[in-house]
């Protein structure tokens, strides 16, 4: 069946217009719209929250310890009498900052190495891929803990560690995507034409691998957020008193039955962000056509 319906006239597209096309394809699905809205909400909240929080996040008040939600404290107060709403609004800032930079780092180095190995092949590829396999066998949370204990937990260390470990699976994905593309006739055509290696990589390969990497990046982002929060939950993340969701959940563990609101707000915040990212990643995959199984024949 020829897909006659998508034969339409299009004007010359710039990068921006291409971005808009993908974006509009993403929000044309309700799940994509929901995901993007959640992500956009969290990002804007992270940016403006210091200016709009009702209280100071460090304000300790012994008189209002573990108060239930009320008009003054919409989400209640915690065991030190701090406003939960304020701390939740601020609690995603570190997580978002660290994981966003770490994701970009992971995609960049993992993607670069993966494409390179996919192109070069041969013994170097074999050798490095076995190392990658070995790394993938490691229980990552233990390794992360070890590094944080040894080097400390300031944001720079977290970015580097997360970026490194989450880049490893990206190598696999990028290498596989490269193999798929390199076998295609258009790459053979470019080789037969005598195009230089860099032209082949940048013009022929990159546009086709980039989609895969983008989607992979979105997935990795949500995983990394989870990992970051897990670290804080275990007490190895951002140091107090900076508010963080993982830490907030951890602190409220023992008083959960007494004051469930202390855990509820950060849990909702964290899961809505992760769900938002996952939905967006899904919509992105469909918009750029990686998720072929979902593509209707017409």
């Amino acid at each position: 069946m020829m897909t006659t319906t998508n034969i339409e006239y299009v004007k010359k597209k710039g990068v921006f217009a291409g971005f808009l096309t993908v974006l509009s394809a993403m929000i044309s699905r309700s799940s994509g719209l929901l995901g993007l809205t959640l992500v956009a909400f969290h990002i804007s909240l992270a940016i403006v929250s210091p200016a709009i929080t009702p209280y100071d996040f460090k304000d300790v008040n012994a008189q209002i310890i573990l108060n239930a939600p009320s008009y003054e404290h919409l989400f209640g107060t915690d065991s030190l009498g701090r406003d939960v709403l304020t701390r939740t609004m601020l609690g995603g800032r570190q997580a978002l900052l660290v994981t966003t930079i770490a994701t970009i780092l992971a995609i960049t180095w993992g993607g670069f190495l993966g494409v390179l190995l996919g192109l070069v092949g041969g013994r170097l590829d074999e050798f490095l891929m076995r190392i990658v396999d070995a790394f993938l066998c490691l229980p990552w949370i233990l390794v992360l803990l070890l590094i944080v204990v040894m080097v400390g937990s300031d944001p720079g260390v977290l970015i580097a560690t997360l970026g490194f470990f989450y880049g490893i699976p990206v190598i696999r994905v990028a290498r596989a995507a490269t193999h798929d593309v390199v076998a295609q006739d258009f790459v053979t055509a470019a080789r037969a034409r005598g195009e230089s290696r860099s032209t082949i990589v940048w013009r022929e390969l990159a546009p086709n691998v980039l989609d895969v990497l983008l989607v992979e990046g979105a997935m990795r982002w949500s995983w990394m957020l989870l990992a970051f929060s897990s670290l804080s939950f275990l007490g190895f993340g951002i140091s107090p008193p900076t508010p963080d969701w993982g830490m907030m959940i951890s602190n409220s563990l023992s008083i959960m039955s007494l004051a469930p609101w202390t855990a509820l707000a950060p849990v909702v915040a964290l899961s809505s962000l992760i769900i938002g990212i996952n939905l967006s990643a899904d919509a992105l995959a469909k918009a750029v056509g990686i998720d072929r199984a979902q593509k209707a024949p017409i």
Binding site: Q184, D185, F186, T188, A189, A192, R203, E204, P207, N208
Partner: peptide
Amino acid sequence: QLIFQNPDASLNPR
């Protein structure tokens, strides 16, 4: 110059 069998594969979809 070469022309290939399957134009779906010989033209870069992007």
